[in-house]
Structure formats: C-alpha cells, structure tokens
Design a protein around this nucleic acid. Structure first.
Length: 227
DNA sequence: ACCCAGGGTCATA
DNA sequence: TATGACCATGGG
C-alpha cells in the first residue's frame, strides 16, 4: 500500500466530520481579531474575549485603535497574553484602516499581502495565513501545531521541517481551491481536538488504519521522505 | 498540581 | 540555525 495523499486524507476527514463552515465569525475584521486572539490559546477563551468586545461595542477597527491600552487589555483578558495582544490589536487596526479596510486589502496579490502582514510584529506565518484564507479569500494552506502533529504521526512529514516546508508539502500536492483549503484546516483542527492529543489516543481514531500503514511505509528505505 | 490551548518574539550559543 | 525563556488565561 502506498502512502496516502493529502487529498485522500482530506476526503477521509470530510467524510467523517462533514463541512465545518469556518471561520466562526460574522465579518472579515472579526476573523482577523479572532486570528490574533487565538494565538496559543483555546477558542473558548477567545470567545469570552470576543463577547467582551461585542458587549463594549469595541469590535471594530476605530474603537480598538482609539481605545486605551490598559482598558483594551482588560476587555480581552480571558484570551491570555493580553498585554501583547492589546498592543498588537491596536497596531493591526491602524494597519487595517490605512490599507483601506477589507476591500482595500483584498486588491493585493496574496504574496504581497502575506509580506505586509508578516511585517507586523506579533503576526507570524499561521496568523497571516489564517487572515489570508478566512478573511481575505486567498487560497493558502494554513499550518498549525495540529497539522504538524497529525502528519508527522502519520509518517507523512519528517520531524525536522519548518512552517514553509509543511505548507509547501500541501500546496505542491493540492489544487488551491478556497473552499477546500478553508475546510481542510478546519477539519484538521476538529480531528485533532478529538483524536490527536499530545499523548496519542490512536485507537478509535478514524485515521487509525491509514496511520498504521503509513508508518510502515515510511520505514521502507525506498520511501525516504522529501516533503 | 500539573498539562494544554487554532503562536510569536527575542536573547543566547 | 537552533534551542530556551517569556508572554497569561481558563478548562481538564
């Protein structure tokens, strides 16, 4: 049995969990705020912070940009790292405003946009790509800790590989479709939350069989990974 | 009392 | 380039 392709994994996950309809937010700017707040933080904590922002009617770039730093930090406190994130949200809101908001940003090609986002201190590759994919409709593959964990555990990725290496692995093997990339990342998160915790619980995992055969395949000498 | 979460930056070797 | 420290909350 050959190693499963990223497309086959996607089809298995989709069949198992169905469409996820990500990102859970109303407006693009709300997606961007969520992408920042969820850095190394559980989504339930982010929801509390988002709800606080909504209750204070602060979930818009003008309110965030003009708000007091300490006050904003207090509102987003449940999402953790609130000092860094308060500062980042304010700097990002200025960027968002200066670039002509969502419609202004969407005019740029994705490579240009990605560089601009990465130039903002506090926005790394995953946050940038999440914003591109879920707020600005750019078909990029979002890599997170779950993606690495699942695919190294499957034996499809080597342990030593950086963010761009993992992203290239997927983007070179999939046709870039907006909806498919949006679903794929969401499905990876959904699957990992249930079955791919840090301490393996691989029995009862829908990918268990493919996982076992994939690990065998990666042992074979002629199947050395090039990712 | 730990471990974990939809990361990222900076200092050090 | 490659680890380690740091940021911080809330749930299991």
């Amino acid at each position: 049995m050959r190693k499963p392709s990223p497309l086959q994994i996607y089809q298995l996950l989709y069949k198992e969990y169905g469409p996820q309809y990500w990102w859970p937010a109303d407006k693009p700017f709300e997606v961007m705020v969520g992408a920042i707040l969820t850095q190394n933080t559980s989504w339930t904590n982010v929801e509390m912070a988002i709800n606080n922002l909504k209750a204070k009617k602060m979930l818009d770039y003008a309110s965030i940009a003009s708000s007091n730093h300490e006050q904003l930090a207090e509102v987003i406190r449940p999402s953790g790292f609130f000092n860094q994130k308060s500062d980042l949200l304010q700097r990002f809101s200025l960027f968002y405003m200066n670039q002509g908001k969502t419609s202004g940003l969407k005019k740029w090609p994705k490579s240009t946009l990605r560089k601009q986002l990465l130039d903002i201190s506090g926005i790394g590759p995953e946050t940038a790509d999440s914003i591109l994919l879920y707020a600005l409709d750019k078909p990029v593959f979002v890599v997170d800790a779950y993606t690495r964990r699942i695919f190294t555990r499957l034996g499809l990725l080597p342990d030593k590989i950086d963010y761009d290496g993992i992203q290239n692995y997927f983007q070179q093997r999939l046709t870039p479709t907006l909806l498919m990339f949006q679903e794929y990342h969401a499905l990876i998160v959904e699957h990992a939350k249930r079955h791919c915790r840090p301490k393996p619980a691989c029995d009862s995992c829908p990918l268990y069989t493919i996982c076992a055969t994939a690990r065998q395949a990666s042992m074979a000498p002629e199947n050395s990974l090039t990712a």
